[in-house]
């Protein structure tokens, strides 16, 4: 008999490790999540809709998903620049900057929220300069394009309004993008750029035709992680958001509010809606990533 060819693996026993994986995922992820679905199983359809589709709750979905998207997009762009600088250049203090990127991971979110609020409030270090600028900027916009209610969209102040939410979500999302892009950028040799240059590509072409296609899948992963993290963020946002119903109230706060009123089912129902929405969004991003990989094959 011909010897069977088995792929060699460091961890012994496919059966054992798969079993462990399933048991572990089940215990840590699936059982708690299915408990959420069980909890709402007893709800009538009417109650469910009343809990998850009241105007205040719908406004909170729009805010949570909208601001999370904006924060993740900004992080994808600036995170790329940060990762690029950290990988491609050596400069004094690079290691310190590199370590700083991880800080939002490690900091308790409440500490981040309180610190950001203290800094960006009207009497804070940054807020005392930035806040009047922001108010004036929003005023200008309103003068130029009067048919959009800019003040309601962009907030009347920085802390305690929508810009504060955006700042908090950008803060907690940054390391996800930087840390997923860094290894890919390290792999990407500078020779590639030199080759592009010798073939007559200008900087713009090198960037869009050579570098971006290569890092795009990683960028999408980082974006998805930052986005997912932002949707679920509670601790840092409540301190800086102002928490006005139907205006600056994020969905996780709606869930807490329902819990405070002993409405366990209503809270779980909203949680399930978020869960399902996040799952489909992440699934869509995964598909997009698969699709984008086709273009990156060099």
């Amino acid at each position: 008999m011909a010897p069977t060819i088995r792929p060699r693996s460091v961890l012994p026993g496919f059966g054992l490790s798969l079993g462990f994986t399933l048991a572990y995922l089940g215990l840590i992820v699936l059982i708690p999540l299915s408990a959420a679905f069980l909890k709402i199983a007893g709800m009538s359809w009417h109650d469910f809709v009343a809990a998850v589709a009241s105007p205040r709750v719908v406004a909170s979905y729009r805010l949570s998903f909208g601001v999370s998207l904006a924060a993740a997009l900004v992080n994808a762009f600036f995170g790329f620049i940060v990762a690029w600088v950290l990988v491609r250049y050596t400069f004094p203090g690079r290691r310190i900057v590199d370590a700083l990127v991880d800080l939002p991971f490690a900091l308790p979110t409440a500490v981040a929220g309180i610190a950001l609020t203290a800094i960006y409030a009207k009497n804070g270090w940054v807020g005392q300069w930035l806040d009047p600028l922001w108010v004036r900027g929003v005023g200008r916009l309103a003068a130029f394009v009067p048919w959009i209610d800019w003040k309601s969209w962009l907030g009347g102040t920085i802390a305690f309004d929508r810009p504060g939410i955006f700042i908090a979500l950008t803060f907690i999302g940054l390391p996800f993008v930087v840390r997923t892009l860094q290894p890919v950028l390290i792999e990407l040799e500078p020779e590639l750029e030199e080759a592009a240059a010798t073939l007559g590509a200008n900087r713009w072409q090198t960037m869009t035709r050579v570098i971006l296609p290569e890092v795009f899948p990683a960028m999408l992963t980082g974006f998805a992680l930052a986005f997912a993290r932002a949707i679920g963020e509670y601790g840092s946002v409540v301190f800086i958001a102002g928490n006005q119903p139907a205006h600056s109230e994020i969905t996780p706060l709606i869930i807490i509010t329902k819990l405070e009123q002993y409405d366990y089912r209503g809270a779980t129902a909203v949680a399930v809606v978020m869960l399902v929405a996040s799952f489909f969004l992440l699934f869509a991003i995964n598909l997009l990533q698969k699709w984008s990989r086709r273009f990156s094959a060099v």
Partner: peptide, 21 residues
């Protein structure tokens, strides 16, 4: 006239006293 709705009484006092809101 309420610009900030904190989640608890202590948080509210902090907003008023420390943040000058």
């Amino acid at each position: 006239n309420v610009p900030v709705l904190d989640s608890g009484a202590r948080g509210s006092t902090t907003t008023f006293v420390q943040r000058a809101i």
